[in-house]
């Protein structure tokens, strides 16, 4: 299974990853809708928050709408989802997203677009 791995010490906060993510997920430019989130911590340091595909959300979903696809990536079946957001509250890394213009929770699908956009190698695809 491939996940988006991070080296926050290399992040320069350009947010190219967020732009790439919203383009893939929603064909949008609003980075508030990105599944990967960069947060400035001060002193030119940045936090990178993105799903590590641990799958704890699968067990918490009352509608069995969250599953692992054949590549091991944790996915949400929008037809089954009842929008309770238990997954968002119970994500150990707080990487399940909500945005008021998007119906239902959303998350990183490990497509790799963000890693390709990153100019410094702060995020990269890793086989786990």
């Amino acid at each position: 299974m491939k996940i988006v791995a991070t080296k926050p010490e290399l992040c320069i906060g350009c947010k190219a990853c967020e732009e790439a993510c919203v383009k893939v997920l929603f064909k949008d430019t609003d980075t508030e809708k990105s599944a990967i989130v960069i947060t400035e911590l001060g002193d030119d340091k940045f936090d990178i928050n993105v799903c590590n595909q641990c799958g704890e959300c699968i067990e918490i979903c009352p509608a069995q709408a969250i599953y692992r696809n054949k590549n091991g990536v944790v996915m949400i079946d929008g037809d089954k989802c009842v929008h309770c957001y238990a997954c968002a509250g119970f994500c150990p890394t707080l990487s399940m997203r909500y945005h008021k213009e998007i119906t239902g929770p959303f998350k990183c699908i490990a497509c790799g677009a963000c890693t390709r956009a990153c100019p410094t190698g702060a995020i990269y695809m890793e086989e786990v």
Partner: peptide, 13 residues
């Protein structure tokens, strides 16, 4: 409603 819900889910977690 969703924001209040997520907040309480987190509190329980």
């Amino acid at each position: 409603i969703i924001k209040l819900g997520i907040k309480l889910h987190r509190e329980i977690y």
